[in-house]
């Protein structure tokens, strides 16, 4: 954990501080760096008579601020951090996609990282082959997954240039 925290710090992923202060236990909105896979989404389960769900927002925040993705109040969000922020709320699908070697969530992650088209299938294969390292335990967090993917990219001659060292 210590090493992950260090690696995360080097990548510019803050895994503590105000960004996490108001994070909910099940967090599919916002940063979610501490999100774990298989959290489930049950608190917003549909009602039986949902004619009325037409326009409810669950427990989300109203407003058109565009920083939902970044969780950052100002400044530009750097790629490694963006990556971890995307992974947080998308952990369940991402792990499934990595295990299968492709899928929409994995494609979107490649886009977030900025991987060019010709290198994407290599990226997909690398995450599949290193699945056990990336998803090391059922309790792995989004920040840990981001760090592990970065390490896998660093080890690959082609993908190296997309990684943060």
């Amino acid at each position: 954990m210590q090493r992950v925290a260090l690696a995360a710090a080097l990548l510019g992923i803050s895994i503590s501080g105000p960004a996490l202060a108001d994070q909910k236990p099940v967090n599919n909105v916002g940063c979610g760096l501490g999100s774990m896979a298989f959290e489930g989404e049950t608190e917003v389960a549909p009602q039986v008579l949902a004619a009325t769900t037409n326009g409810t927002l669950g427990n989300q925040t109203f407003g058109i601020s565009s920083h939902t993705l970044g969780c950052a109040k100002d400044g530009k969000v750097m790629v490694p951090q963006k990556m971890a922020m995307f992974i947080g709320p998308n952990m369940n699908h991402l792990t499934a996609d990595m295990a299968r070697g492709q899928g929409e969530t994995l494609t979107t992650l490649a886009y977030v990282i900025g991987i060019e088209e010709q290198d994407r299938s290599r990226f997909y294969a690398a995450t599949q082959q290193n699945f056990e390292r990336i998803v090391s335990s059922p309790d792995v967090t989004a920040a840990e997954v981001a760090v592990a993917i970065n390490t896998v990219m660093l080890e690959d001659a082609t993908l190296r240039r997309y990684a943060t060292s």
Partner: peptide
């Protein structure tokens, strides 16, 4: 899990074991 029919402690290790097995097969989805 998402419909609330299974708890995380019950589901997570099983799901991970399945995904690990799956990641060893190169076959397309």
């Amino acid at each position: 899990r998402n419909t609330g029919a299974m708890t995380r402690p019950e589901m997570a290790p099983r799901a991970l074991a399945l995904l690990r097995e799956r990641s060893r097969i190169a076959a397309p989805p």
